[in-house]
Design a protein around this nucleic acid. Structure first.
Length: 467
DNA sequence: CTATGGCACGGATT
DNA sequence: AATCCGTGCCATAG
C-alpha cells in the first residue's frame, strides 16, 4: 500500500479546495514560480534546509526515512515506489550530458576543444579589436554549445553596444558547428534554417514552428501545432522530421559526436519533466521508482518562530501577521494535498501501465480517466487537471506527456506503424484494418486513415519503399 | 470500382 | 459549455 503522511489531508474550506485544484494542474515551472512568489511575499513561510538520506544521498521531503532505501521487504515488486522528490537545481539532460561528454571526449577524432576549433574558423573574419570579445564569448559555452552569459551584460561590462556583441555572435553562429554560441535551441535552429535555405528548400512550416511554436514542439504536441497553423498533423510530422533530420538543437553535441540513436533523438525534449520514472538502480528486475519533482531545495513549512512571534506581538501587528500566518498554512496544506493526490494518482497509474512503461507503447492499457477517478475516489475532473500539461521521463529517457498514459489509440498506432514499416508493398487502409483485426484490434477504416495522418504516414499510393 | 479525404454526429474529455 | 476523438456517409481522384 501507499504510505500515508502522518494524518489524512482533507479539504477544509472552499478556498483550500480551489487552491489545491489550481496547484494540481500546474506544471513544475509554474509551481516553482508560485512557491517563489509566495515565499517572498509572506514572512510566515519558511524553506527549511534540505535534508538528505544518509544512505543514498537523495534529497528528502519532510518524511523521516528515505522512500527508496526503506522499501519494505515484503512489498510487491510489481508495486512502484512513488514519492515527492525535491530537486531545485535539476538539469534535464545531466545524465546524457555526462554520457555524451565521456563518449565524445574519449573517442572524438578532434583533439582541440570546441572554442579553439571555432575561433580558428572565424579569426579571418574578425577585426583586430573584436577578437577579444569573440574569445570571451567562446570561453563561455556549455557542453551543448550554448552561451552561458547574457550578451547584454557582456555589452555593458565591456562598454560596447549590444549590437556589436550580437554581430560577433552571428559570425560565431555561422561557423561549424552551425548555431554554436546561440542562447537556446530555438536560436540555434533559426540560424541553421537560415543557412540551409541558401542551398536548399526549407519547408515553410518548419520555419514557422521553429520561430513561433518551440514550446509546442518540445512537448511534441503536434495536434496543437496543426491546429494553430490550420494544417494537417501529417504536415506537421513532415516538418518535424525535416527538423530532426537536418537540424541540431544542440550544436555542441554534434561536435562531440552524436551518440543518441536516431529514434531517441526525435523524442528529445528541451524542457524538464514534471515526473521521472526509473528502475531502482537501473535494474529492470527492481521496482519502478517514480519521482514527482518539487522545484525546491528543502521543505516548505510555516515558520514556527513566526508563529510564536505573533502571539507576543502588539494588537495592530497581530492582525496583519495573523493573516500572513493563515495564508501560509493554507498554502502549505494545499501543496501537501496536491502532492498527496499526485502521489496516489501516479501510484495507480504506474501500476496499471507498467507494461507500457517497461515494454513500450504497444502495451499501453487503454484506460480512461473516469476508471481511474473511481478507483481513487476523486472527481474525474481532478484527474484531468492533474494530468494536463505535465510531462514524464521514462526509464528510456524519453519525455512524453503524462496524458499519453490515457491515449486509447497509442497501442494501435504503434502496431500500425510496425506493420507499415515491415510491409513489402504499400498496404491500403482497408488492408491495414484486416491486419489489425488479426492482432485483435478492431477499428474502422476511416480511423486507420486518421491514425496514418497522426503518424505522418503518407497514403498507400504515395508511399515508396524506403530502404 | 477502389482508395482516401472532408464533414458531421455522438460520446468522452476538459 | 466547449472541445476532442472515433466513426459513418459521401464526394472526388485515379
Amino acid at each position: 500500500m501507499l504510505q500515508r503522511t502522518s494524518q489524512e489531508i482533507r479539504p477544509l474550506t472552499t478556498a483550500h479546495l480551489a487552491q489545491t485544484m489550481t496547484l494540481l494542474q500546474m506544471t513544475i515551472d509554474e509551481i516553482k514560480q508560485e512557491i517563489e512568489s509566495e515565499l517572498s511575499s509572506n514572512p510566515a513561510l519558511e524553506l527549511r534546509d534540505e535534508r538528505r538520506c544518509p544512505t543514498c544521498g537523495r534529497l528528502l521531503q519532510e518524511r523521516e526515512n528515505c522512500p527508496v532505501c526503506s522499501i519494505p521487504k515484503e512489498s510487491n515488486p510489481e508495486d512502484p515506489v512513488v514519492f515527492i522528490s525535491p530537486k531545485d537545481d535539476f538539469t534535464p539532460h545531466s545524465d546524457q550530458q555526462e554520457d555524451d561528454y565521456l563518449d565524445g571526449h574519449d573517442y572524438s577524432p578532434i583533439t582541440e576543444d570546441l572554442p579553439t576549433y571555432v575561433l580558428k574558423q572565424i579569426l579571418p573574419d574578425l577585426a583586430e579589436e573584436d577578437r577579444q570579445y569573440a574569445v570571451f564569448l567562446l570561453a563561455n559555452l556549455d557542453d551543448d554549445g550554448f552561451l552561458t552569459v547574457d550578451p547584454l551584460e557582456l555589452a555593458q561590462y565591456f562598454h560596447v553596444p549590444l549590437a556589436k556583441i550580437n554581430g560577433i555572435r552571428r559570425i560565431i553562429q555561422k561557423a561549424d558547428p552551425l548555431g554554436v554560441g546561440s542562447l537556446n535551441p530555438r536560436e540555434a535552429l533559426q540560424i541553421q534554417i537560415e543557412i540551409l535555405s541558401e542551398t536548399q528548400a526549407v519547408p515553410a512550416l518548419a520555419t514557422l514552428i521553429v520561430n513561433e511554436a518551440m514550446d509546442l514542439l518540445s512537448k511534441r504536441q503536434f495536434n496543437e501545432i496543426a491546429h494553430r497553423y490550420n494544417c494537417s498533423v501529417a504536415d506537421v510530422h513532415l516538418a518535424v522530421s525535416f527538423i530532426s533530420e537536418n537540424l541540431n538543437p544542440f550544436p555542441g553535441r554534434s561536435y562531440w559526436g552524436d551518440v543518441r540513436s536516431p529514434s531517441v533523438s526525435t523524442t528529445q525534449v528541451y524542457h524538464r519533466p514534471d515526473i521521472i520514472i526509473n528502475y531502482l538502480n537501473d535494474d529492470p528486475a527492481q521496482p519502478l521508482i517514480v519521482e514527482i519533482i518539487m522545484p525546491l531545495g528543502g521543505t516548505l513549512r510555516v515558520n514556527p518562530l513566526f508563529r510564536k512571534a505573533v502571539k507576543s506581538a502588539d494588537e495592530e501587528q497581530k492582525d496583519i501577521w495573523k493573516e500572513d500566518l493563515e495564508r501560509a498554512s493554507l498554502f502549505v496544506k494545499c501543496l501537501q494535498q496536491r502532492n498527496h493526490t499526485m502521489q496516489r494518482l501516479m501510484f495507480h497509474l504506474v501500476k496499471l501501465q507498467r507494461d507500457f512503461i517497461v515494454k513500450g507503447p504497444k502495451y499501453i492499457e487503454p484506460i480512461t480517466r473516469v476508471q481511474l477517478s473511481v478507483e481513487l475516489d476523486v472527481h474525474e475532473s481532478t484527474i484531468s487537471r492533474a494530468v494536463a500539461n505535465k510531462t514524464v521521463q521514462l526509464p528510456t529517457k524519453q519525455i512524453i506527456p503524462l496524458a499519453s498514459f490515457f491515449d486509447r489509440s497509442l497501442n494501435i498506432r504503434t502496431i500500425m506503424r510496425e506493420i507499415i514499416s515491415s510491409e513489402t508493398r504499400p498496404l491500403s487502409d482497408a488492408k491495414l484494418v484486416k491486419l489489425l483485426e488479426a492482432r485483435g484490434h478492431f477499428v474502422a477504416r476511416r480511423t486507420v486513415a486518421k491514425y496514418r495522418a497522426m503518424e505522418g504516414i503518407l497514403p498507400a499510393h504515395l508511399r515508396r519503399m524506403i530502404t
